[in-house]
């Protein structure tokens, strides 16, 4: 799937024209607007830290801007996501070499998974029970994803969380289609096995075997 420049509109931002190797004109802010959410999601789950994820996405967009003249066309989404994924890999590698400990309070670093506290404003959309249940489920899924090998985790994040097609995931991960299929299959089986051993709040499929 080729993302054409005509799909973008520059109504909400400053136009930032860029040109790829084939000579097609794009607005880079439109590219950012389109892909920032999936890029942040991927980085957030790969790195497990929202501030690091923001850094990875920002650096990925800057790298993409500087290297856009080398983009030969094709799937722009996969190209951008590959840059972000490579950034995340580099960050993980450097963090493994020099581990750091966050000074933030425990469990307060996740804006999409806030721990209930006295200062939290209660949501009108869901009850406290639902909120707690959703948080528990999210934590279990995060733990399950973190228990998988890195490649299977990325395949699951791309295909299941981001909704990428297998072809897009293969381009993003720079591997073959068959490799993506097997990684997705193994990743889902691993997640299912992990969830079967944990979690009382999980759906009935996971509690039948216990």
């Amino acid at each position: 799937m080729t993302t054409s420049p005509q799909t973008f509109s520059c109504a909400n931002h400053v136009p930032l024209p860029v040109k790829n190797r084939a000579g097609d004109n794009f607005c880079y802010n439109c590219i950012i607007e389109s892909f920032q959410s999936p890029a942040y999601n991927l980085a957030r789950r790969l790195l497990g830290d929202w501030s690091l994820a923001e850094d990875a996405v920002q650096e990925g967009f800057v790298s993409g801007y500087r290297a856009f003249a080398q983009f030969r066309g094709g799937n722009l989404k996969a190209w951008v996501m590959r840059i972000v994924a490579n950034n995340c890999r580099d960050m993980l590698r450097s963090r493994r070499a020099r581990p750091t400990v966050s000074l933030d309070p425990v469990n307060s670093d996740d804006p999409d998974d806030p721990t209930p506290s006295a200062v939290d404003i209660p949501s009108k959309d869901e009850s406290p029970e639902d909120h707690a249940q959703r948080s528990e489920l999210r934590r279990a899924l995060d733990a399950g994803l973190n228990s998988l090998p890195q490649e299977q985790k990325m395949a699951l994040l791309l295909v299941d969380v981001q909704g990428f097609s297998y072809e897009e995931a293969a381009q993003t991960m720079s591997c073959s289609l068959g490799t993506v299929k097997s990684r997705v299959s193994r990743g889902r089986s691993g997640m299912r096995d992990f969830l079967r051993t944990t979690g009382e709040l999980l759906p009935s499929q996971f509690r039948q075997d216990r």
Binding site: I32, L156, D160, P203
Partner: peptide, 28 residues
């Protein structure tokens, strides 16, 4: 059914919204 449940849970529960926009006002 268990695989489908894993897929749907991943799709629904793990979507994070970025805290800020990454759109630039000027090129880097």
């Amino acid at each position: 059914a268990s695989l489908a449940a894993v897929t749907s849970m991943l799709r629904q529960a793990l979507h994070a919204t970025p805290r800020r926009s990454f759109i630039w006002t000027a090129p880097p």
